[in-house]
């Protein structure tokens, strides 16, 4: 009884705060402040048509670096928690047979999904999309592969190598920004790498960094899903 009363009290106070916030909210009619700067100068300073990509990879790339570090840590902790013992690792569980249709379709669809994911993160500076979305699509392709063939084992070394090489490369390209550009993770390389606005070879190092981020995110999400799939073997 007391518990329910306390819950109601907490929710009522939250509701009061949110009600006031909602009432005092005035819809914007024009961009102001830092968003206006990004909108006006994003195209000329960074050269990316997609301003979200410009913010994620260039203006606030420290944020992204921290984010991929956190994702790496999460994947590492999950691998540590769900690690199997030797006898669990060798156990084979009998799944129900997947249908012929799914197997055949997955053979056709998985390469297409990988291709689409790569397309999404290579074109991240021109169209909606980018490293995180492309990585999620690649992880979905891995999910489809697991669904079509539940006894499949993903080679762990491939995931580890893709992840570490792309992670190190992001930092190395960031250091290249100190040498050639204005600072760590500067994507413009002193204005030389901008290229023609709106084409695929433009925006400095943004496509390269975002592709590497996409590979890293895809590998990490696949690793998490693979660990969960393997943990089913444990009794």
């Amino acid at each position: 009884m007391l518990r329910n009363f306390l819950i109601a009290l907490v929710l009522a106070s939250f509701g009061f705060i949110f009600y006031n916030l909602y009432n005092s909210y005035e819809p914007q009619t024009e961009l102001t402040g830092i968003a206006a700067h990004y909108a006006e100068n994003g195209a000329s300073e960074v050269g990316a048509a997609n301003l979200v990509t410009a913010v994620v990879v260039s203006y606030r790339s420290f944020d992204t670096l921290g984010e991929i570090t956190i994702l790496f840590l999460t994947a590492a902790i999950i691998s540590f928690f769900l690690k199997l013992s030797k006898e669990d690792e060798e156990r084979v569980i009998i799944h129900r047979g997947t249908s012929e249709l799914l197997k055949t379709a997955s053979q056709l669809l998985i390469p297409l999904m990988f291709l689409f994911g790569i397309y999404v993160f290579i074109n991240g500076h021109l169209t909606p999309g980018g490293g995180f979305q492309g990585g999620a699509i690649i992880a979905s392709a891995v999910v489809l592969a697991i669904m079509a063939n539940p006894n499949m084992t993903i080679n762990h070394n491939v995931i580890i190598w893709v992840e570490s090489i792309s992670g190190v490369s992001v930092v190395l390209i960031g250091v290249l920004g100190i040498v050639l550009g204005g600072g760590f993770l500067d994507s413009t390389l002193d204005g030389y790498g901008l290229g023609e606005f709106g084409t695929i070879f433009s925006a400095g190092t943004i496509p390269i960094i975002y592709s590497l981020v996409g590979l890293k995110v895809g590998a990490e999400l696949s690793n998490i899903l693979n660990m969960y799939q393997k943990s089913q073997k444990e009794v």
Binding site: S99, L101, L102, L108, L109, L112
Partner: peptide, 16 residues
Amino acid sequence: VFIILTNPVSSHVLMR
């Protein structure tokens, strides 16, 4: 093309 490829397969798996 994507809709033709994916839509029947997903509903087939659901039905199974």
